Amino acid sequence: MNTNKPNIAVVAGGNSSEFVVSVKSGANVLKAVDAEKYNPWLVEMQNDRWEVFQNGEKISNIDKADFSFQLNREKVTFDFAYITIHGTPGEDGILQSYFELIGLPYSSCGVHSSSLTFNKWFCSNYLRSLNVTMAKSLLFTKGDNIDAQKIVDELGLPIFVKPNAGGSSFGITKVKQVEEVETAILKAWEESSEALVEEFIDGHEFTCGAVKIKGEKIVFPITEVIPKNEYFDFEAKYTPGVTEEITPARLPENLFKKCQQLTSEIYDHCNCSGIIRVDFILKDETFYFLEVNTTPGMTGTSFIPQQIAAMGSSLTEIISQIIEDRIG
């Protein structure tokens, strides 16, 4: 280990169903950290287990008092944390709060932005108040009475039922019959204490990433998402060949710019920082907002690395710029 180079923690894992995806993201980001400039370390977190890995081998536990670890009986501290946890505690503001408390710079959105965007209901209602177009939705907290017919009367069929806090399409159901509503809500409650029931928008899915470095925002090329499954579920997201992904998206220039502009506006509305990704459905030349991802997937098949490559840059280059921006 070169003691003159900053120590970078690539933090992966987490306490949700997205653990496996996060570990893949972490491995890809670890590989992309410029080892000539930095000492990269993989930190895997799951509940009370916080461990440091090197070359796939555990070398130490993390001291939770200051996020340090022991190597050859010497204390090693980090200069920066790159968060690749999807779900709690890395995407909802909890880990961000801890890093703020101990004074460790990190890669993602701050505490308030992370907690706002992770709660789909809060985020949607906030953005709706700023005239961002989106589907109608209803929220059900675990234990609420479910009147399936009333839900269908209000939102129509089909509808999407999803966990209010969560990602990677865990717990999501496309409901086509009134008899399926209750089962779908119970499934979503397995992932989150709240279930979001959304009107179905019949259109095509697009996703766009963005990052702000040294006060300058870079909006990435848009990806067109064409799932072979009925919708963009977990299998479609993470199984090569199940989804066709076209970057840059085949959109007329005016719509391409419109989507990038919307992404930029949402980045600012939510006071984001680091790399984020915004998902949309396009119907009749209108982009309907789906969600903001503040620690988007970074696996080999994920959208953000595709978009960075299409832009003529590399993940290594962007990550280096983010680190330099935060720690100088």
Rank of each mutant, 00 (worst) to 15 (best):
S302P: 02
I318L: 11
S313Q: 12
V20S: 13
P305V: 11
N39F: 01
V178K: 06
Q307D: 06
I62Q: 03
G103E: 05
D92P: 03
I59V: 12
F303S: 11
P252W: 02
G87D: 08
E291N: 08
E245N: 09
L116R: 07
R73M: 06
K150Y: 08
F140D: 08
I281S: 01
A195D: 12
D48A: 15
G300P: 05
A35P: 13
Q261Y: 10
K237A: 11
I59G: 07
T3W: 15
R49D: 11
A210P: 04
A65R: 15
Q321M: 14
L196G: 02
N293R: 05
R277V: 08
N125V: 06
G13A: 02
I213T: 09
G274F: 13
V10G: 04
T299S: 02
F170P: 13
A27I: 15
G297V: 01
T133P: 14
A135S: 13
R326M: 06
I222H: 04
S129V: 09
M298K: 01
E74F: 08
V161F: 00
Y126Q: 09
P163I: 02
S137R: 06
D268P: 03
G13H: 00
F78S: 06
K228T: 11
R277C: 07
E179T: 05
F118Q: 06
E253N: 10
V225K: 12
T133D: 12
N72H: 09
I327D: 00
D63Q: 07
Q321T: 07
V33R: 13
D153C: 05
